[in-house]
Nucleic acid binder design. Structure first.
Lengths: 123, 123, 123, 123
DNA sequence: GTGGTCTAGACCACT
DNA sequence: GTGGTCTAGACCACG
């Protein structure tokens, strides 16, 4: 499990974990029935609170990506990776839209917004 | 002063006020030496706490957009609108970059990200 | 009446007026029984609110420097200029003491405080 | 954390806290990465509102003396204590200058002002 | 547990 | 009237 935490990021730690595990599942690096590391193991590995890892796992479970067996551990559920990709695209779309709307609210021209976007994509 | 508050947004109310007043200043709808509505007036108008409006005004003052005279009111300071535009562009850039990085972290191809962006801009 | 208002100063306007009139009295530029300008006249001259001038005059009267005759105006009272000088010295002493105490609270050495003081006196 | 609040002072409580913490940092009693007491803890200790403590902490952070991590706490930032000393000296200088100017405005001789100053320093 | 935001209302100083 | 400070308590998000 190569999970990288950026504690100075504005994105909450638990969300960073959720995002990365989702992607691992979609990429096939985590397959159906694979066991995730235990809450305590991962928390020690990442040097964060076990409660934070648990919150991430809870989110994954409530979204259907994992199933937790009491006293045994957390396992990757059967997933439709196509569906997951769609979901992630929707999330990206929402983020992009919000950024664009903010730019327009600031009175920045669409041309300038496009230029900025392309600059970032190329950089 | 047409300020619109979205109380269900994750963006704090005081920040929404700050953003909108900054934009009003940059657009020339609020000119140098113009008086902002008093803290109490605006708080009644927006049906929010006076403290929340004050926090917004404090932020504007500490960033140099306004000057406050005790017992008199809050006024638009002399500002370099060029500089303000740059600042807002930087904010937009940061937002866009974060969205793009998230998309890539999700394993979405750059082509797909570009398509999504253009779709939103045209829609 | 040469009164100078610094509206960007931290010292309240009414206090600036009080201070300057006190000094005019002590220097003999305003003598016993001299009439002060009317509240409205002075407020127009200084381009400030009449209420602010009134507050200054009220202060002067309550400290015994002036007497106000209803319907006529405000006049300089009989004063002991020696006493006034003492009072002003005490005020200066209090201000200096507060500044010095602050410096010491900041952990600035007495030598540095003295150096600063002399620098200002000479500059 | 020995912080002393003088609630009858004209100096706002939050500013008293800011001043004293700045000094603790400059004196090395608070070192880089040290945790400040939590907002709630300090507010109980000083028997003041949590909001007042938070306002102090916000000020410290916006001036770069501390960093706050959501859900974790407030920590002393890496600071240039030399720079801080300079800043505090400037503040002292401004206070002394204002006192001296007031004395001169009162027509008190420079010799008298110096005498007063030395008396206070020795006392 | 932590900080972040918001409320409703109080009292004060200045104009 | 204005802004400046403070309170006591609420609800939320994060760890």
């Amino acid at each position: 499990m190569k999970i990288i935490i950026n504690s100075s990021s504005m994105v909450p730690i638990y969300e960073q974990i959720v995002d990365q595990i989702k992607t691992l599942i979609r990429n096939g690096e985590l397959k159906e029935s694979d066991a995730l590391p235990s809450v305590r193991t991962l928390s020690k590995e990442l040097k964060i609170s076990a409660l934070t890892v648990k919150k991430a796992y809870d989110n994954l479970e409530s979204e259907g990506f994992t199933v937790t067996v009491h006293g045994k551990g957390t396992y990757v559920a059967a997933t439709n990776t196509e569906l997951l990709l769609e979901e992630q695209k929707k999330e990206l779309e929402a983020d992009l839209e919000q950024a664009i709307l903010k730019g327009r609210r600031y009175g920045i021209s669409d041309e300038d917004i496009k230029s900025l976007f392309e600059l970032i994509m190329e950089g």
